[in-house]
Amino acid sequence: MRTIDAHQHFWRYDPVALGWIDPATALAQDRLPPDVRVAMDRAGIDGSIAVQASQTEAETLWLLALTERYPWIAGVVGWADLCAPDIADRIATLRHPRLVGLRHVVQDEPDDRFMLRDDFTNGVRAATAAGLAYDILVYPRQAGHVPAFLDRVGDGRFILDHGGKPPIAAGGWQPWADAIARTARYPGVWCKLSGLVTEADHAAWRPDDLARYVDHLLDCFGPDRLIFGSDWPVCMLAADYARVHAVAMEHITARCPDHVDAIFGGNAKAAYRLPDQ
Rank of each mutant, 00 (worst) to 15 (best):
A6F: 04
H7D: 06
D14Q: 06
P15Q: 01
L18N: 06
A24R: 13
A26I: 15
D30G: 14
R31V: 12
V38K: 08
D41S: 15
R42W: 04
R42F: 08
D46C: 03
S48F: 06
S48H: 02
S48Q: 03
I49D: 00
I49Y: 00
I49Q: 05
A50Y: 09
V51F: 13
A53N: 02
S54K: 15
A58L: 10
T60F: 03
T60N: 05
L61K: 13
L64Y: 03
L66P: 08
E68N: 11
E68G: 14
E68K: 13
R69D: 08
P71S: 12
I73K: 06
G75W: 09
W79F: 12
C83V: 13
P85W: 12
A88V: 13
D89I: 14
I91G: 09
I91M: 04
I91R: 07
R95Q: 14
H96V: 13
R98C: 06
R98P: 03
L99M: 01
L99P: 00
V100N: 01
R103V: 03
R103H: 11
R103G: 11
R103W: 08
V106N: 07
E109R: 10
D112K: 14
R113Y: 12
F120Y: 14
T121N: 02
G123W: 00
G123N: 00
A127Y: 02
T128K: 08
A129K: 13
A130D: 05
L132W: 01
A133E: 06
D135C: 11
D135S: 02
D135Q: 07
L137H: 08
L137E: 06
L137T: 09
R141Q: 13
A143C: 14
A143F: 14
P147L: 03
D151S: 05
V153M: 07
G154V: 01
I159P: 11
I159M: 10
D161M: 10
D161T: 15
D161A: 15
H162V: 12
P166Y: 05
I168F: 01
A169K: 12
W173S: 13
W176S: 03
D178M: 12
A179N: 04
A179R: 06
P187F: 06
V189Q: 01
C191S: 07
S194Y: 13
G195M: 13
G195Q: 09
L196F: 15
V197Q: 11
E199T: 10
A203E: 07
W205M: 03
W205E: 01
D209E: 02
D209Q: 02
A211L: 15
R212W: 03
R212I: 06
R212L: 07
Y213F: 11
V214L: 14
H216E: 09
F221K: 06
R225S: 09
I227A: 09
F228A: 06
S230Y: 05
E250Y: 02
R255D: 03
D258I: 11
V260R: 09
G265H: 05
G266N: 07
K269T: 15
P275A: 15
D276H: 05
D276Y: 04
Q277V: 15
